[in-house]
Amino acid sequence: MFLILLSSVAALAAAPSTIHSAAISHGAQAYTASYHAQSAISLREVEPRFANRGAIPVCRWQADVTVNRAVAAQGQAIPAFGKAIHRFAPMSGSYAGTCAAARHQIDAQVARHVADRSAEAVAVAQQDRAVLVNELDGVRALTKGAVNGG
C-alpha cells in the first residue's frame, strides 16, 4: 500500500528560454513572435508500507515540455495570440528518497531532455509562422467586417 505524502507541480525554470523569434509584417503592423520551451514537473512522494521492515520514500515524477508562442506589437504583448503550439511526449521516472533530495537530479534530467529536443522545438516554432499569419488574417478580416458594418 502506498501513502501519498507530497504532490506538487512546479516550473523547471522561472523564466523559460527563448528558442526562436520571428518578425512578421502584417498589414501596417509589425509583430514579433517569440517561442519558448517550458517544462512543468509534477512530483509525488510515496512511501511503501511493509509489515516487517522500515519504509523508504520514493519520488515519482512526470515532466511535460511545451513550446509556447508569445506575440507582441509595438512592444505590447498581445495575449490573444499567445498559446502552446506543441507538446512533447511526457517523460517520467522515479528516485529512491524524498522528492526534495531528488529535485536536482530530476531538473537536470529534464534539462537534458529539453536540450536534446531543441532542434525539433525550433523547427516547430519556424513552421508556426504560417499559422500565425493565418490567425492575423482572420482577425483582420473580422475587424474589417466590423468597421464596414458587415
Rank of each mutant, 00 (worst) to 15 (best):
A89I: 00
H36Y: 10
T32S: 08
I4W: 11
A10S: 11
S39V: 14
R112K: 12
L136N: 01
V131C: 03
A23Y: 11
T18M: 05
E45N: 11
I24S: 08
S34A: 15
R49K: 14
L43F: 15
R117W: 00
L136V: 00
R69F: 02
S7P: 02
A125K: 08
A15E: 04
A80I: 06
T32K: 09
D107W: 06
A22T: 10
L12G: 10
A108W: 04
E47D: 04
S118A: 14
A77T: 00
V133W: 07
A108P: 03
S8A: 15
H20Y: 12
V46T: 13
V124G: 04
R129I: 06
P90Y: 05
A141D: 11
A10H: 13
A13H: 12
Y95A: 14
G149S: 07
A84C: 09
R129F: 01
R87M: 04
H86K: 07
A33E: 08
L142F: 08
A108C: 08
A15H: 07
S7A: 14
G93V: 03
A89G: 15
G150P: 03
I78M: 05
V122S: 00
K144C: 01
N148W: 01
K83E: 10
Q62M: 04
N148R: 01
V131N: 10
E120S: 11
A96G: 13
S94K: 12
A108D: 10
V67T: 05
A123W: 02
T143V: 02
V71F: 05
T98M: 09
A73G: 13
L6M: 15
V71T: 04
I56H: 15
D137V: 03
D64G: 03
A72V: 01
D107S: 06
N134I: 04
T98D: 08
H36A: 11
A40N: 10
F81T: 02
R117K: 03
A123H: 05
H26R: 05
V71W: 04
N52V: 11
A33D: 13
Y31C: 09
A123G: 14
V65Y: 00
R112L: 07
K144I: 02
D116K: 00
P48I: 15
Q29N: 14
Q127V: 08
S42A: 10
A96K: 13
H104G: 12
S118R: 13
V114Y: 00
R49W: 09
V124N: 04
K83M: 14
A28K: 13
I106G: 01
A80E: 11
L3G: 13
I4Q: 15
D64C: 00
V9H: 09
H86D: 02
V65D: 00
C99L: 07
G75C: 08
E45S: 10
A100E: 15
A111H: 04
A96E: 14
A119Q: 05
K83N: 11
A40G: 05
A11S: 12
V58T: 12
F50R: 10
A146E: 00
A121W: 00
R129D: 07
A13N: 06
Q126R: 09
I78N: 07
E135N: 08
P16E: 02
